[in-house]
Design a protein around this nucleic acid. Structure first.
Lengths: 104, 104
DNA sequence: TTGACATGCAACCAAATGGTTGCATATTAG
DNA sequence: CTAATATGCAACCATTTGGTTGCATGTCAA
């Protein structure tokens, strides 16, 4: 799970996910379009996304298609973010109460 | 929002959030307990969490209380993760279909 | 078959990151 | 008042990260 968080931490990688979300199965060259960095840099980012299981690839001849796998993101939402969401209102209430207790 | 993702990328910082989730308003020293790193390292992590607006602090005399702010996490869930969640089943179907089209 | 095209691999580099140590400051307890 | 306690600040260090360049390999098309 740490790998997923780390993968999501970089804006370039989030943009890549966005692109795949907009159009799935894009090739490496396609993903490089308007990415103002070298193809090799994009390759590295995609490798990290693949390592986090956020992207799956299929070799098609001399091309490589990239597919978004949203499952790990869903798991983070369920198992980690959900925990904080549930405490949402309570935490804010706690904070408010604490700040109001400000009488030195 | 980038700051939030970056802040969440580190396991130590996620652990700190967990601790505050378990017990809100803890002091710096309290948060250092069983953190096998120096107080100064923890301070830096808390500063990053504060910079991402995930933690709010209140100075109480010579102590500093730390409060979890779950709002940014909720925003990420809503505005970013939700987008992928909605495409969840569709994306998996696309992937499956694509893999089945494997006949060279 | 041969050249163009898509990708892979590796060495290298600067900057960011996560951690340390050492010392300064401010508050509270005795 | 004074000593202990809680935190702040800054310099320094090793490793990781995000990027580059250069070259190798594999596949398709003419």
């Amino acid at each position: 799970m740490d790998a997923v968080f780390k993968a999501l931490a970089d804006p370039t990688r989030r943009k890549l996910l966005d692109r795949l979300h907009a159009q799935n199965g894009q090739t490496l060259n396609a993903l490089c379009g308007r990415m103002d960095m070298t193809r090799q840099a994009v390759t590295k980012h995609l490798a990290i996304l693949e390592g986090a299981n956020l992207v799956a690839t299929v070799r098609k001849g001399r091309e490589k298609e990239h597919y978004l796998n949203p499952v790990p993101i869903g798991e983070i939402a369920d198992r980690w973010i959900g925990k904080y969401e549930r405490g949402h209102l309570k935490a804010l209430a706690d904070l408010k109460r604490s700040l109001e207790r400000e009488d030195p």
